[in-house]
Amino acid sequence: MTDGITRRMVLRGAGAAGVVGALATRAPTSAWAQAGAQAPALGGQESVQSALKRLFGARPLKDGAGVIKLEAPPIAENGALVQVSVEAASPMTAANHVKTIYLVADKNRIPVVTRATLTPEMGQAFVGETIRLGETTDVRAIVEQSDGTLLQVRREVKVTVGGCGG
């Protein structure tokens, strides 16, 4: 699909998109190490039911169809790397914006994948990432709006496992 694009174009930003290199700062900060050790985990090995109960209690998850666009491949060739994205229609103003987007993979051993905490400065409620899926499962996007409303959509992703070793 990108056969015509040369490496120079990609690296030097002569094409449609620029790419910025960045060297990592590798120094571990002890403050974080301590904080990290104590920080409550977003999610561990649990059932999706207990994860949702833990995160949302008895609050209703309303149908988010029409507001949330969850993109995921219907069939994932490789469960180790599945590109998903969530976009929620929102004015993203101080008064009315998306506060958080949860991504949940029901049948993963660790069902909660990510909690994204957004701000109006983003201008658009959009988050994409590469996730793992252990097996064929529903993937859910749960959106919490600034008024506290919780909206949810889900779609199934089928995970292909090996053919004959290739």
Partner: peptide, 11 residues
């Protein structure tokens, strides 16, 4: 299968 996207994109 849909593949894995732009192979020349370092991101």
């Amino acid at each position: 299968p849909v593949g894995f996207g732009d192979n020349l994109d370092a991101t």
